[in-house]
Design a protein around this nucleic acid. Structure first.
Length: 508
RNA sequence: GUCCGGUUCGUCUAGGGGUUAGGACACCGCCCUUUCACGGCGGCAACACGGGUUCAAAUCCCGUACCGGAUACCA
């Protein structure tokens, strides 16, 4: 049987990084088995589902490279089928009408109210004490016929237990006494989650359900529905959760944008790096290695390698340098500086375009070599694609800012530089400028530049670093970067002269 | 409350009866060097606790603590 798995988010917000990992694991599993990866939008909660959320989920999946293999299924479109299934179970006596009036919502949070009620009931609660459970068919039909509203509940057997072997957590058993007669259909006719999921998974011919650990108890309920329907359940695998520092739930309300996938796209992360990082949250190939291509992940992935303990998404809210998980930041940087340049180039192009720094000449033969060499040179110290347009701005534009810390460290401390650097410009012009302008015809290359700068430094009786770092600040606006000799060469003689002569940085 | 899970460096993790408990990130130090966030070398740092089984327990069993999930006419 062909493996068919699904990622089934509810469109009630952004695409969560934890949900993204579920999608990734489903995808890896499907690809490895030569199966299909499907997407189902669980929009049965009409009140909370939004189109915008659906769009953002689709967008996020596309960015991360997890496009579904078949058309997206919208659960709400199947509501009629869900109702038919509920009626069938009712007709077969496997479900019953519950005429208990719908409870009014409480003022406390739903979650707390449930917890409170459960605590009050303790372990004493008899899950089979619904007065309508054994109502005669005749009376049930009569009351329904009279227009009395009712919910349809599954009739969970008195004794016995549900059991399944989870591919991650092993044998899971739950006594029927622990499971209430779950509602299949609301009194307003809307199908509920557990019924909808089972119906759709059957219809989509899902073979393996891979989802978050928070669904572990739902699985027992769903197995009861499968049994009532006489359908063999799929295989189940539950994934440990991704938590926030301190072991708390990672949610937007508490932790902000860092939980949303699109944040990373917008912050200049590479999808490949993010996928790689995510794959290592809760899964391991049992080897000492951390960089994996998508192909390698597909090859190595296994549910047996998925952990049972939750992972913590580590970050420090008030530390700009560690605004998200430091290993993720490292991994993105690692990808940027080590991936094949040709693979990186399109991403940099997109970033420069977005920052209005892109020029078509970079694609032409004339400037292409320069462009690619420059990217290759500066990428070594960058963490995100954003760095190409921020820290790297001076390589592509005359309109760049000076980092006050760089000015302080490299210029202010050496007042002589205000005259020395324009002098250096003059020296460069003499050495490398046009013959017609009275210069020699030496080319502006690292080796030649070094000779000139060293001689200049000696004349001034200062250290090479003073000149180099002063020049660095003027030429690039920042205090860090590649070897200055390379920077001179890449910036080119003309711009170097201009920038060395500029007094802007000294006056700021 | 009840049911179900979990617990190895700060974080991600390897190991699953005998290991100097390994790697990665972060952090710190040294080196390279014209700076540096690149690179190289090194360092700090962990088996939640208590019993038991065993010649031997991080590893197996039981208990405790703590953490998480679930407990809806939400998904």
């Amino acid at each position: 049987m062909t493996t068919r798995v699904r990622f089934a988010p509810s469109p009630t917000g952004y695409l969560h990084v934890g949900a993204t990992r579920s999608a990734l694991f489903n995808y890896l599993y499907a690809r490895q088995k030569g199966g299909k990866f499907l997407l189902r939008i669980e929009d049965t909660d009409l009140a909370r589902s939004t189109d915008e959320s659906t769009r953002s989920i689709l967008e996020g999946l596309e960015w991360i490279g997890l496009a579904p293999d078949e058309d997206v299924v919208f659960q709400s479109a199947n509501a009629d089928k869900h109702r038919v299934t509920a009626s069938k179970l009712l007709a077969e006596g496997k479900a019953y009408r519950d005429f208990t009036p719908k409870e009014a919502p409480t003022d406390s949070s739903v979650k707390d109210a449930i917890k409170e009620r459960a605590r009050a009931q303790g372990g004493e609660k008899n899950m089979r004490d619904n007065p309508y459970r054994d109502l005669s068919t005749v009376e049930s039909d009569t009351r329904a016929g009279n227009g009395e509203p009712f919910a349809i509940r599954l009739k969970v057997p008195e004794t016995g237990k549900t059991a399944f072997t989870d591919c991650v957590f092993g044998l899971q058993e739950r006594d029927y006494a622990e499971t209430e007669d779950l509602v299949l259909l609301r009194s307003d006719g809307h199908p509920l989650y557990n019924l909808a999921v089972v119906c759709d998974d059957i219809e989509m011919r899902i073979t393996d359900v891979i989802r978050g650990q928070d669904h572990l108890t739902n699985t027992h309920k769903q197995i009861l529905i499968y049994e009532a329907l006489g359908v063999t359940p799929p295989r189940f695998a539950h994934l440990p959760l991704i938590l926030a520092p301190g072991g708390k739930k990672l949610i937007k309300r508490l932790h902000g944008e860092i939980v949303s996938l699109t944040t990373y796209r917008d912050a200049g992360f590479l999808a490949a790096a993010f996928r790689n990082f995510l794959a290592l949250m809760g899964w391991s190939a049992s080897e000492e290695r951390e960089i994996y291509s998508l192909e390698e992940l597909i090859e190595k992935f296994s549910l047996a390698g998925v952990h049972r303990s939750s992972a913590i998404f580590n970050y420090e809210p008030n530390n700009p340098k560690r605004w998200t998980d430091d290993k993720l930041i490292w991994m993105n940087a690692e990808y940027i500086r080590t991936m094949p340049l040709a693979d990186l180039l399109p991403h940099v192009k997109a970033e420069l375009k977005a920052a209005k720094l892109w020029r078509e000449e970079y694609d032409d033969n004339d400037d292409r070599d320069w462009y690619e060499r420059t990217i290759d040179l500066i990428r070594a110290r960058f963490f995100t694609l954003k760095d190409f347009s921020s820290q790297g701005r001076a390589y592509f534009s005359e309109d760049y800012d000076f980092d006050p810390a760089a000015i302080d460290k490299n210029l202010t401390k050496f007042p002589d530089l205000q005259t020395w650097l324009p002098e250096l410009a003059m020296r460069f012009e003499q050495e490398f400028g046009q013959k017609s302008a009275g210069g020699s015809d030496k080319t502006f290359t690292e080796e030649n530049i070094e000779t000139v700068v060293k001689a200049f430094t000696e004349e001034k009786g200062t250290k090479l670093g003073v000149i180099m770092n002063g020049a660095r600040t003027l030429l690039t606006g920042v205090a860090v970067g590649p070897s200055m000799l390379s920077v001179f060469e890449v910036i080119g003689l003309e711009k170097t002269l201009m920038r060395l002569r500029s007094q802007v940085a000294f006056n700021s």
